[in-house]
Write a protein that binds this DNA or RNA. Structure first.
Lengths: 192, 192
DNA sequence: GCCTGACAAGGACATTTGTCACAAAATGCT
DNA sequence: AGCATTTTGTGACAAATGTCCTTGTCAGGC
């Protein structure tokens, strides 16, 4: 399981064998079954995850119990609830697996230690934060502009792999429309 | 003008007089008139702004020419188009002033130099990036959940000061509804 | 192999929201 | 003060979307 991570990190940062060893020594390998939660609302996000296999999602619920997916995360991606992770406050989000998955887990303290010891890792994380800023900005724009139909097709265009792996109602929940609306959109676009 | 910044930065980071001098020496003071642009689509964001007075906005347009406001930025806030600033690609956003404003401007290269020279500044910017991640995440959630009415009242609750300073159609453009819808919401809520 | 639950689709209807057109009020500028 | 522009509100209508409900299919668990 760690070798997936090793390939990833070696392509993104220049690390010594010692660095890798250190990172590995503080990591925990974990399997997460489909529908299993690794973070629940009210808990504090003490861990950062790297997905080596499968797919997880970050989601929130409103007062009526509706789910809103904030992020799909697949292999070779990092995941945590940033808000709780950074602030140390109880999370208002959930993380669970959409497919049977395998993840590497680091404790926040340990990871912080790694960042201090391994500048290349720190640099990589910084780059990723920058990218996530950009992605979030673009998502905000996508979400406030355009119709449900546009959002749907933009999603397919941008995340074709994810689109083919998750049920439609989750895509509805990601773009912020009801699943019935998504059904309608699909029906109408068949005719075209 | 610089004294506003000085008060801000002194409250947020521990800097020596030399640090401050250095920061100041690389800054440019600039007035921005209401409706004046400091960044246009297609330009590269080479500067980072700190607002000492007034209010600016970051916005994008769609193919139909509709405006979507991504961010309101008031006194004591930093502003740039992160995407263009980070990637160096032409921006797909605009920045202009909503009120007559005063800003401090740093060239990207210069600012990068400052970050290298002044760890406390680097640390501060890192914190701000973290907060913007959280804010963006929350905005995505707010935007995909709830009705126009909910979004409107959540905006007022969250940004009462901004609400009182900007025209309503800009709030509509921020939360992603038409201004007519906002008018309706206001009319109905008067009766309550 | 059967049964349950998850998933997708569809119809019917209510509600929300967008669009267009116009008017009133407020504001800024000279 | 007077004029132009901006801002806000409103009505009428169409379109989009949500909600509730039923149905059918399919896959996984036992």
């Amino acid at each position: 399981m760690f070798d997936v991570f090793e390939r990833y990190i070696s392509a993104k940062a220049i690390l010594t064998d010692q660095d890798l060893c250190l990172i590995r020594s503080l990591s925990v390998e974990r399997k997460v079954a489909k529908r299993e939660f690794v973070l629940r609302e009210g808990e504090i996000a003490r861990y950062i995850f790297f997905i080596t296999r499968g797919m997880l999602r970050l989601l929130r619920t409103d007062d009526k119990g509706n789910e809103y997916i904030l992020r799909f995360a697949t292999e070779n991606n990092w995941l945590s609830d940033r808000e709780s992770y950074i602030t140390g406050n109880p999370s208002n989000a959930y993380i669970d697996a959409i497919e049977d998955s395998q993840v590497l887990v680091w404790d926040k303290q340990d990871f912080h230690f790694l960042l201090k010891e391994i500048p290349a890792l720190k640099q990589l994380m910084k780059e990723l934060v920058g990218r996530s800023q950009i992605a979030n900005q673009n998502r905000v724009f996508t979400t406030i502009s355009g119709s449900a139909e546009e959002k749907y097709f933009r999603f397919i265009e941008k995340y074709p792999d994810t689109f083919n792996r998750v049920p439609l109602h989750m895509i509805a929940s990601y773009i912020g429309v009801s699943r019935e609306t998504l059904s309608r959109i699909r029906r109408h676009s068949v005719n075209k």
